[in-house]
Each structure stands twice: as C-alpha cells, then as structure tokens.
Design a protein around this nucleic acid. Structure first.
Ligand SMILES: [Mn+2]
Ligand SMILES: [Mn+2]
Ligand SMILES: [Mn+2]
Ligand SMILES: [Mn+2]
Lengths: 217, 217
DNA sequence: TAAAATATTTAGATGCATCTAATTTTAAAC
DNA sequence: GTTTAAAATTAGATGCATCTAAATATTTTA
C-alpha cells in the first residue's frame, strides 16, 4: 500500500497537526523526521499526489481524510505492539518505542485484529496514549499537565508527554508510574518546580518533569 | 545491519545451497527471488563485498561462515514468528508464511529472545521445520519422504516440503496434519500414487502429495 | 515599506534495488 | 574441435528516498 517512509511522514504530520494552528510547516516536519527541508518538500508532494495530504506551496501541509485514516491505523498498530511488548514479552515502557516503530509497518489486517483480540482489546498503550479502534475512533481523555495543577490538588497519573527512554527511566527510578495518585504539596514560584506526594513518597520535581506528565483530576 | 533485500537473498542462498552440488547459480537465485539474473549478479557482488558470500564470476555463489550465521538468524526469526502466529493469534499454518516473511526483518535481539521465551522455546515451526537457537544450531530430524516408504510401513508425519497455501489447505481438507500416524496400505506402480491410512481414514494420494510429506519412521 | 532574515522550494547529485538490452563466458551439441 | 545454445555479466536506465547548494518566497525588523 504505502511505503515505510510515507507511513512515517503521515504519522509525523498527524502528531504535529494536533498542536499546529495552521498547516504543518516544512521545517517542523523536517525536525520531527530528522531530515532536511528539501527532502520534506519532495515527500509532501508525493503524498499530495496520492491525496493523503492537502498541500499548497509555502502554506504548510494538512492531512486529508484518507491521510488521517491511514495515520490512525499506523498509530493503532504502533500502540498495540507496544502493549504486546510490555504485557507479553516483559519489555519496559522505555524499551518499546523503537521496536514498535518497525512493527507498525507490518502489513496484515488479520495480524492486527488478532493481536488486538489476544491483548483483550486494550484502550491505552503503556504510555497512557489511546489506541484507535479498527475504524480509527478513540476516546480523548480529559487530562491536565501536572504543571497546571495548584497546591493541594490531587489526581491520577494517566499519561506521559515525553516518551524518551531517559525520561521514562527517570520516572521508574523515582517510582512514578501510570495509575498512581499524585498530590501537589508545594509549588515554587521562582522556577515552577513542585513538591509532590506520590503514594508514600515525597519528591521535588522540576518543570521538565511537570510539563511532561498528564494528570486526570 | 543488513537491508531487507540482502537478508532475503541470504535466506534464499541458504535454502538453495542445501540441494545444490556446486555453488548456487545466478538463475536459480533469480527464480527463487522472483527477479532477473542481472539483478542477482548485482546483489551477489554486494554480498560478496560484505563478505557474506564467496563469489567467483560464472562460478555460482556460496554462503560464507558469517553469511550462514546471518541466514540462520533470519530463519530463526521467521519460524519463531510462525509459531507465534499459529499458537497465539489463531492463524492457520497456510496463513503464516507471508506475514512471517515481513516480521523476520524486525531488528531487535531482545524481541526475539523474549519471543522465544514467551513461546516456551519451541523446537519446530508449524510446518515441522527446525528452529535454530540463538547460536544458529538446530537438530536435523532424520525424516523420509512419504513416497520412499514401502507398502506396510508406518510412520509419523513430521513435516511438509511444499509449504504453499494450496498444498496446506489440501492437507487440512483431508485431515492430514503434523503428528498423525500414516500407514502405507498400497502403492500403485503405474503412477506412484499411494493408498494410505491416516488415523481412521483411508485415502488415495498422488505423488504430488507423497513427494511433499516428511515421515519419521 | 524596503531591507534583512528566515522559510521553503528547486536543481542537480548520490546510493540502493531493480529493469531491459547487449555482450561475454561457459556448456552442450554436432 | 567448431558451432550453437544457455547462462551469466555488463552497460545504461528508472524510481525511490535522500542530500547539498542555489534560487525564490514569505515574514520580520527597522
Ligand atoms: Mn515507523
Ligand atoms: Mn506509546
Ligand atoms: Mn523476508
Ligand atoms: Mn515454516
């Protein structure tokens, strides 16, 4: 159907589009894809020829309906594989991304529907991100960044924004995990750092941390 | 490490080498890879540059020790994935090959060692073929083609030579499966066809069948 | 709003895997 | 042992995904 590269571009556009006010810019895509702007222009033209994106020169790029559908199916596969790796193969949540990045491109409808069944239709991946169903539908959780909480507020950790291995290992080390209850004990005006209670532990965390943790109040 | 194409070539050379008296010929490889002889020559040169094969112009190609090791690791992955698909995802043995052909190229040591563990270290794939261990070692079963059995002989079905979907579906339809006991009741001199007993059933099968079933006596 | 800075696109090139057509080498037939 | 047929290699081309360098468009700044 689509090449590995095309699929990765669609996914990148999908992710960038969520935060973009206008079309996704060439440079933003180049940064995300770890490539050069000129390469992005080439690929965007190709995706446009295939009606996966809407592209007008210098105006940035938007996913078309079919592009969005395709992107969501790749994301579905990526996240299902992540669940598989953690639940069945004893991978840690900081190890799964790289492998899922490859597995998401395997082409087989049956493979993914059976995997979904085998995993008992999970709704979220190991990082708390929602898993689209076969139609591309998924529920958006109403979640807040930890940094947006005020002193005294309490919530449950439901996701991470930064999924880098370094960040996830930091969280592991400090026993910060999905599902745990977090209370904001104090917030330092000067640098935004917080003193939090997570189960029995107390911990001071920087904005690098609070800006990358999602809480459901 | 190696490209998808390189890996597929190594695997093809490995399989062809088993039956070849001399080096694997360019045309044989082209046939196996569904490509043109000129493409094979190009690739073989590349593999030779990487010391994965020994190649002298017009003399055919042989796997080097490192090429053989690599081929066996890809075969290991292919067969482990086949077991996974059948045992865990309810694939039938005629559905697994195509998907495994893609999965075998996923690059992750941990993935494959954990998969092996998850599957409880299987020794054979769904077609009865041996699964090499992490070192590339595997036991060669002493097996005979059904066509080589004489009237009155009995054995266990331990493998299939032809793994095409058509053949496997034919076997399913006639309830011929791995592990079943087969007795040769009669053999027709004229066309080599056999009357066999498989559990409670009696069945006449052509040489197209008897030449593609492995029996352990 | 004109100049400067930044963003984006185009032009031209490379490496990979493939192809067709032409050439060369080896094997088979006479 | 020549000639002929088959097998293999080389030459030259294409499509894909990428790059660098140059050109052009847009945005920001003064
Ligand atoms: Mn990917
Ligand atoms: Mn994830
Ligand atoms: Mn393959
Ligand atoms: Mn098999």
């Amino acid at each position: 159907m689509f090449s590995l590269s095309e699929e990765n571009y669609l996914k990148a556009i999908f992710h960038l589009q969520k935060h973009a006010k206008a079309g996704v810019s060439t440079n933003a895509l180049a940064e995300e894809m770890q490539t050069k702007a000129s390469s992005v222009t080439d690929m965007v033209k190709k995706l446009s020829d295939k009606n996966l994106v809407i592209y007008k020169k210098y105006q940035g790029v938007y996913l078309s309906e079919s592009g969005r559908k395709t992107a969501l199916q790749i994301i579905r596969k990526h996240r299902l594989w992540e669940v598989f790796l953690v639940e069945k193969l004893d991978f840690t949540w900081d190890e799964v991304h790289e492998v899922a990045e490859e597995l998401e491109h395997i082409k087989s409808e049956k493979l993914i529907s059976e995997l979904d069944k085998f995993l008992d239709y999970p709704k979220r991946d190991p990082h708390g991100d929602p898993i689209p169903d076969a139609e591309g539908d998924f529920q958006v959780a109403n979640k807040t960044l930890l940094s947006d909480l005020s002193i005294g507020e309490t919530g449950t950790l439901v996701g991470v924004k930064d999924t880098s291995s370094e960040f996830l290992k930091y969280l592991d080390k400090n026993k910060i995990a999905l599902g745990k209850t977090i209370e904001v004990l104090d917030k330092e005006e000067f640098d935004g750092s917080m003193l939090i209670r997570i189960e029995e532990d107390r911990l001071r965390v920087s904005t690098m941390v609070t800006n990358n943790i999602y809480i459901k109040i």
